[in-house]
């Protein structure tokens, strides 16, 4: 799925990384616990979260993720946007709750894991 399709499905506002909207992602995960993201996630392209602090961006960067979606109308700080721009990560925010956002993505074919058993 292209990142621009995620934006459409979640009716999301782009915050940075517009140049990567055509980038393909193959799976996603959802968590507010970054340690769980670091533990269980493998080759996920997208992180859906309601957590706001710079470690969200660092975690995504460590995991080579392409896109972070902030749900529940949460907006990242300027510091987080700067960090994401440096890492080449797309940020967007949606008014949907996490469950609803994940439901839309899953129904549209974006699954939880690209072949592993967790996530």
């Amino acid at each position: 799925m292209k990142i621009c399709e995620i934006q459409n499905l979640l009716n999301a506002t782009m915050l940075c990384g517009e140049e990567n909207l055509e980038h393909e992602v193959y799976s996603a995960c959802c968590s507010d616990m970054m340690s769980d993201v670091l533990a269980y996630v493998k080759d996920q392209g997208v992180l859906v979260t309601g957590l706001i602090n710079p470690q969200v961006i660092r975690t995504a960067s460590m995991m080579d993720m392409a896109c972070v979606v902030f749900v529940r109308s949460k907006a990242p700080t300027d510091e987080m946007v700067d960090l994401a721009e440096k890492c080449g990560i797309v940020l967007m925010k949606s008014d949907m709750r996490a469950y609803e956002a994940c439901g839309h993505l899953f129904a549209a074919g974006l699954r939880g894991n690209a072949g592993g058993t967790h996530g």
Partner: peptide, 17 residues
């Protein structure tokens, strides 16, 4: 710390993993 997304008891296990 949990409110910041850490402290799930996965730090050292992740380092081992």
């Amino acid at each position: 710390i949990r409110a910041l997304g850490f402290g799930a008891g996965m730090g050292l296990p992740n380092m081992k993993k």
